[in-house]
Design a protein around this nucleic acid. Structure first.
Lengths: 164, 164
DNA sequence: ATGTATGCAAACCATTTGCAATGAC
DNA sequence: GTCATTGCAAATGGTTTGCATACAT
């Protein structure tokens, strides 16, 4: 898609600016990682990114992946979500539709949902003591599948109680 | 405070109900942990809870602490916030004023702020595919101290640029 | 009496770190 | 040529797990 190429062009430029401003080197690894991220869709974790890099015939070490990701976080080209001690997801930050996250406390599945109105309200909040750059809204609960399962288990349990 | 005693009484009862319903034993360790949590104020992490238990002359192992905390999470008496891979905070969930979190991306300090209106809006959102129980709103940015520092550094840098 | 919960120590695992070799500048 | 960056392997640290003992039921 033409629009995606345009976005990639812009983020590459932003990355270059950031690297220059911070006296960091413009290595091929760094650009390859950035471009892969902006080619793929949606969430990703470190492991899938590591595998995807290999698939695209540009293997990098995990250390380099973490190093580069930190740079991308610092220049706001990537967002990080930590859903639990060892569960973290990343996503594009530039030109990515604002969305919120529904997290199932049972199966840990993460869904996205958009709510422009809510976004506007949250971003409109001012606070003297704080200069916000971005935010994350996580809503916890049961996804439809787990809610159904829980309902059925409940039924079984109440049956058991009646039996005894 | 009288109100605090009342709250402790209620959460103890809720915990008992949960343990009974799930065939878990009502050990003194579990109640001691719950009551300490509902005695102290604000956020806490595992390490400070571990130390606090010792100070109250009720030393428990870290394993027991994690075990009990999982039970308290399951019965919604405690909330967990994961701010980074190895940074997690807990807080009381029952009768705890709803609040949101301001997280400084520079010094990692976490501030709380209340916004009842925002709370009402977020909780009012309905979604067919999801049954929400609770939510977390994290706003990232720079705290006042770090914002000031960043400003000063910027000034220095632009001076340097002019010098060269 | 039975089997869950505890304490302890070892294991886990994503991430970080140290170091020699590479390559951007 | 210099020194930041890379790859690799070892270290880190909060959390989990396995096992013998203790204790709630």
């Amino acid at each position: 898609m033409d629009k995606d190429n345009k976005v990639r062009e812009i983020v590459n430029q932003k990355f270059t600016e950031y690297l220059t401003a911070n006296n960091c080197r413009k290595t091929p690894e760094r650009y390859a990682i950035l471009n892969l991220i902006y080619t793929e869709q949606g969430h990703f974790d470190m492991d899938s990114l590591y595998e995807a890099m290999k698939e695209h015939n540009f293997r990098v070490s995990r250390g380099t992946l973490y190093n580069t990701m930190q740079l991308l976080l610092d220049c706001n080209l990537v967002l990080k979500h930590q859903f639990g001690q060892n569960i973290s997801f990343y996503e594009k930050a530039y030109n990515n539709d604002c969305h919120h996250h529904l997290i199932c406390t049972n199966c840990r599945k993460v869904q996205e949902f958009k709510d422009t109105k809510l976004k506007t309200i949250i971003q409109g909040k001012k606070n003297r003591r704080f200069s916000p750059t971005h935010y994350s809204l996580y809503i916890y609960g049961l996804c439809s599948a787990c809610a159904r399962e829980a309902k059925e288990n409940n039924k079984k349990n109440s049956n058991k109680t009646h039996e005894s």
